[in-house]
Design a protein around this nucleic acid. Structure first.
Lengths: 143, 143
DNA sequence: TATTGTTATACTCTATAACTATA
DNA sequence: TATAGTTATAGAGTATAACAATA
């Protein structure tokens, strides 16, 4: 069993690396780091969210998050707003300029990735998706 | 097509995150960073390799690699040895202590991961593997 | 007392470019 | 000239713990 599992995980990791190699290049052309893109992409098409929520979605711990948000705020891409119901919370959301960035960079990252899927048939996607859904289920349950 | 592709990539990334969440904890308990573990794991069960080769396998660029290797050398886990045929090259390999570390940490990371695969049948692995192999093929070709 | 987010600390990774030594 | 690896530089991410404001 362990051998099967190692082989699958290695494949998983190799696929991610191949994919990220391409997207990283695009992301960097926009002057964004991986973490920064992660946050812009998470905030895109949402009304914003608290730091806590943002940290949970991006898996960035709160201390680190402050620094990353500082840099994004400094560049004018996000803004912080103190919550009304709970004044401890900060709502983070994209500024108009941040949305413009999102609208530009996100489709481009998607396109770069999509170019790699030429000839990938619907049934190929289905098979892959089913397998990954099952895997994800297992990985989640086992925590 | 783009939608299918996004869904698959998101799943891929979520699976990796779930998996790495567990392994990262184990790795950190041994005082290793992700990059450091990557190198130890790459060198394990090999007679060693050049910096160039190591950099290609781990996707760490040469300037960065020097620093990571410095820290590993300082802790006595790897050693550098000047090549004989080509005196520009350095052969990196695990020290006895590095191998001991590898023998301890690697199975534990594997075990932590494997625990999440209980009930995962051979055919589940086969399906997943086939789908991932096909995906990897596509991603590689499309570069 | 508990929670949200910031600050402070210390370290590691990162890309890049200039450099040394070999080839 | 080209290649293998180091050094220097300037950011950026990371975990952790102590902290302030609010609940």
């Amino acid at each position: 069993m362990a051998k099967n599992y190692l082989r699958s995980i290695r494949l998983l990791s190799e696929c991610m690396q191949l994919f990220e190699l391409a997207s990283a290049r695009t992301v960097r052309q926009f002057g964004l780091t991986h973490s920064q893109f992660d946050i812009i992409a998470t905030l895109g098409n949402t009304p914003g969210m608290t730091c806590k929520e943002l940290g949970e979605k991006t898996l960035i711990t709160k201390g680190t998050l402050t620094g990353v948000l500082d840099r994004l705020e400094q560049k004018g891409w996000i803004q912080r707003e103190r919550g009304n119901d709970d004044r401890r919370q900060l709502f983070i959301r994209l500024t108009a300029e941040g949305e413009r960035l999102f609208d530009e960079v996100f489709p481009q990252v998607v396109a770069t990735g999509a170019r790699r899927f030429t000839d990938y048939a619907d049934e190929d996607f289905d098979t892959l998706e089913q397998a990954l859904i099952k895997l994800k289920q297992h990985l989640s349950d086992a925590v």
